[in-house]
Nucleic acid binder design. Structure first.
Length: 421
RNA sequence: GGAAGCGUGGCAGAGCGGUUGAAUGCACUGGUCUUGAAAACCAGCAAGGGUGAAAGUCCUUCGAGAGUUCGAAUCUCUCCGCUUCCGCCA
């Protein structure tokens, strides 16, 4: 959530940022709401103060055994009036908050302005795509013979669910363990988190109220996590951390659940866009001065995984129109998919600044002893399902077998190849 | 799932319906003392918001919400959470 005070003081910047984000909201309407709200507050507080002093006087008088009739008379009508103003205040706050909560984060200055994914900017390219001396097969065809089974997934649940069997299932687990070990070496603390969270957590990381459709609601106020970012980041909700404890680096390997509303027809083939997929997620709670640097670190951690796996990739910076709601800067990493002759998203690393921290009330004490919002960052390292896809695509052999990347072999008990049964 | 108890500041822990935003202890910060440290002593130390250039000042907040009252941390109700016991069960 954005800070109304900041908007008040940076109206022009706010207006251009919203325009670049593809939002039609302007500051004027918000400032109007803010103004009426503050007017109500002033009136309300004046009356509250009156009630408080008279009430104290009554108390003192009664303690001395005096007659408070005159004061009680004066109090007549104050309480209902206060209550009325308090109600108005509540309404005004809700109205302002509803307006604010619908606004995306302000992009950082260095983020390229643009409308959609076509305006994203490539900033790095690594590795050379393999020269195949045979026609490579798409992972969903080639992988099927190795245990990647969509039919059984569809039978059990429906479209966009898969059944992985045998070595291919083991390989996905190996991938995840490899990634977690990598992050452990980087100083991340591994966490095993709840996979179901409440409304407050979903609001904390800004999945709610705007994107309720994207997640699975499991009754009342509970949700299946769309990413481990939600539980990990929300661990800091309503807390004030000591600055010496920053940054806090956490990671978790979890299933992620997404309804994929609005993506009908997209990526329907293959293990790319599932309702349920595994992902290793990194979350960092940072000092505001360090968050930019830490975003580079998160991105590098993810890139290193692909380098160790020897999978070509490119890193892009998302333009203003393509960035996620909470982010002020995002790097996407895309892995090479030979049969599509293109790079496909495998990781997304974002600096959310104080955007989530404000809705979560996650703070720290700064040098002056004042509380200040922390910055939150998150990034996949990586989506394990899509990493499996990248390996299937890049490491396949002509005879239908799959070479296991060197770094993963220790996690597979030394196995070097997955062969067709 | 059933029953009982409990939810107060970073933590522990007081708090007859009325000068209680809240005693006390610990922790923390600054100071005195010391060659230095410890100890001792002195002082400070909640968050959010309004107003203000600032100093300041005012309002709100004792799990959340509603109610009783001139006045609620304190009384009533609902909800949430935790603990213990019983039941069930990886």
């Amino acid at each position: 959530m954005l800070d109304i005070k900041w908007i008040r003081e940076n109206t022009e910047k706010f207006d251009t940022a919203m325009k670049n984000r593809g939002s039609s909201v302007t500051s004027s309407n918000l400032l109007e709401l803010d103004k009426t709200r503050r007017n109500i507050i002033n009136k309300m507080q004046e009356l509250q103060a009156k009630r408080k002093t008279i009430s104290k006087e009554i108390g003192m008088l009664k303690a001395k055994g005096g007659d408070a009739a005159a004061l009680l008379e004066e109090m007549q009508g104050i309480s209902p009036a206060v209550k009325n103003l308090e109600e108005q205040d509540r309404q005004a706050n809700i109205e302002l908050e509803n307006a604010l909560i619908a606004l995306p984060n302000i992009p950082e200055d260095c983020v390229p302005a643009g409308k959609d994914e076509d305006d994203n900017v490539e900033i790095k390219k690594w590795g050379t795509p393999r020269e195949f001396d045979f026609e490579p097969s798409p992972h969903y065809e080639f992988g099927e013979k190795l245990g990647l089974d969509f039919a059984t997934g569809a039978k059990l649940t429906g479209a966009r669910y898969a059944w992985l069997q045998g070595d291919i299932a083991r390989l996905e687990r190996a991938i995840a363990t490899f990634m977690l070990d990598h992050l452990r070496d980087k100083g991340f603390t591994e966490v095993s988190v709840p996979l179901i969270v409440n409304d407050a957590s979903m609001i904390g990381t800004c999945q709610l109220p705007k994107f309720a459709e994207d997640s699975f609601n499991v009754g009342d106020d509970r949700w299946l996590i769309p990413t481990a970012e939600v539980p990990l980041t929300n661990s800091m909700r309503d807390t004030i951390v000591a600055p010496e404890n920053l940054p806090i680096k956490m990671c978790a390997w979890t299933p992620c659940f997404r309804s994929e509303a609005g993506s009908a027809g997209k990526d329907t083939r293959g293990y790319i866009r599932m309702h349920q997929f595994f992902k290793v997620e990194q979350v960092v709670i940072a000092h505001p001065e360090k968050s930019d640097e830490l975003l580079n670190e998160l991105t590098k951690n993810a890139e290193e995984i692909l380098e160790k796996l020897n999978i070509p990739y490119r890193t892009i910076i998302l333009c203003t129109g393509d960035m996620g709601f909470s982010a002020k800067k995002t790097y996407d990493i895309e892995a090479w998919v030979p049969t599509q002759n293109t790079y496909r998203e495998i990781s997304s690393c974002s600096n959310c600044g104080d955007f989530q921290a404000r809705s979560m009330k996650a703070r720290f004490k700064n040098k002056e002893g004042k509380t200040e919002f922390v910055h939150t960052l998150n990034g996949s390292c990586l989506a394990t399902g899509r990493t499996l896809v990248a390996i299937l695509e890049n490491y396949q052999n002509e005879d239908g077998s799959l070479t296991i990347p060197d770094v993963l072999q220790p996690y597979m008990g030394g196995q070097k190849v997955i062969s067709v049964k």
